[in-house]
């Protein structure tokens, strides 16, 4: 049984409950009063990018639209601007729920496969945790090459002027490709993170069982 079918079984008709137990801050979703302030505040919404602004996602969760919510690219578009959070009259931690939804969809393998931000998010995390610090060059190259080598070169060319500007200004170091910044205690970091993952996994599974 895949991760997804396992939870789907467990929460068959109660998607809201699933979100409450499995998603960071998910227990706030029921408190939304559908005022729409978040949607009206969300920058990516008014650049007409979103399928479902937060208000709508929350309503979909309450209406049990599991498939549509978890496969949506909407939460991946959140820029973490925190506009919604500070304006929500119900003080709902919308940004965190957005991240939480994305993380959950990713965790159970339902997130859209080549969603750029999803890809970048993973890349960033790997990049950061590998050495303990971010390597910006590898990070951007990784992103450009996500759709394969040819597309990568194209993307790279498109961004060439940007990169060159940074190099000239001393803010992008080509030598970073071979090594670069890192933490000394990488082993400790890796062990610590492995432990954290394990604890979290156990806790979420316990919720599902209980």
């Amino acid at each position: 049984m895949s991760a997804n079918t396992a939870v789907a079984e467990k929460y068959r008709n109660n998607f809201l409950k699933e979100i409450e137990e499995q998603v960071e801050m998910g227990d706030w979703v029921k408190m939304c009063m559908q005022c729409g302030v978040c949607s009206g505040s969300c920058p990516t919404n008014f650049q007409s990018a979103w399928d479902h602004p937060p208000q709508e996602l929350f309503m979909m969760i309450r209406a049990g639209k599991r498939e549509e919510v978890l496969t949506s690219s909407s939460m991946w578009n959140c820029t973490s601007c925190y506009n919604c959070i500070v304006r929500c009259p119900r003080k709902i931690p919308i940004t965190h729920i957005m991240h939480g939804l994305a993380e959950y969809a990713h965790r159970i393998g339902m997130a859209p496969k080549m969603q750029a931000t999803r890809f970048f998010s993973g890349l960033f995390w790997k990049n950061a945790t590998h050495t303990g610090r971010v390597n910006e060059l590898k990070l951007s190259l990784g992103l450009y090459f996500k759709d394969g080598f040819v597309q990568g070169v194209k993307n790279g060319m498109a961004m060439q002027s940007v990169a060159l500007g940074l190099v000239k200004a001393g803010r992008l170091n080509v030598l970073e490709l071979f090594g670069g910044h890192k933490c000394k205690d990488q082993k400790g970091i890796h062990a610590m993170l492995a432990k954290a993952y394990e604890i979290e996994r156990v806790r979420k599974a316990a919720k599902m069982a209980g």
Partner: peptide, 26 residues
Amino acid sequence: PDWNCCGASIGYAEAGELPRHVLNAR
């Protein structure tokens, strides 16, 4: 000394909750 990355908000998808906080806690 030997500080590490904060995890920044974009790392959320891979990180989950606890690992993110653990990074900062270090």
